[in-house]
């Protein structure tokens, strides 16, 4: 049972770390801000969820498990708001937005 927990937990943690690594690579490989937000903020929210689930397998008592779930919920609630605000600033302040992406319609 202990070995099973260890294996499942480490698989989850390493998946999350792999996604974190991909997000960091994506920060450098994409050229414009709006594309970088896609890679970065989104990959991060799933990666944080994976690491939290992986750490749940490592802890034994119920208290930390519920707290980890609450932390994952907070990350999922706050992360989209933050990335939405960043994209809104980018759209409002960038002068040469047309070169970077095809704009069909704007508010």
């Amino acid at each position: 049972m202990e070995l099973f927990k260890l294996i499942v937990g480490s698989v989850f943690i390493f998946t999350g770390l792999f996604i974190f690594g991909v997000a960091t690579i994506g920060l450098f490989r994409f050229r414009y801000v709006l594309n970088r937000i896609h890679v970065a903020a989104k990959c991060d929210s799933l990666a944080a969820l994976f690491v939290c689930v992986g750490l749940m397998f490592f802890s034994s008592s119920p208290g930390p498990i519920i707290k980890l779930a609450v932390i994952a919920c907070f990350i999922w609630l706050t992360n989209p708001v933050a990335s939405h605000l960043v994209s809104k600033i980018e759209v409002e302040t960038n002068e040469n937005l047309e070169d970077e992406c095809k704009v069909e319609e704007l508010p």
Binding site: G16, F20, A23, T24, L27, V33, R36, I37, A40, A41, D44, S45, A47, A48, V51, I71, I75, N79, A82, S83, V86, I89
Partner: peptide
């Protein structure tokens, strides 16, 4: 700003 956001999430983890 994007980089700071990511760093904070990584810091939490």
């Amino acid at each position: 700003l994007v980089a700071v956001n990511i760093i904070s999430i990584k810091g939490v983890v």
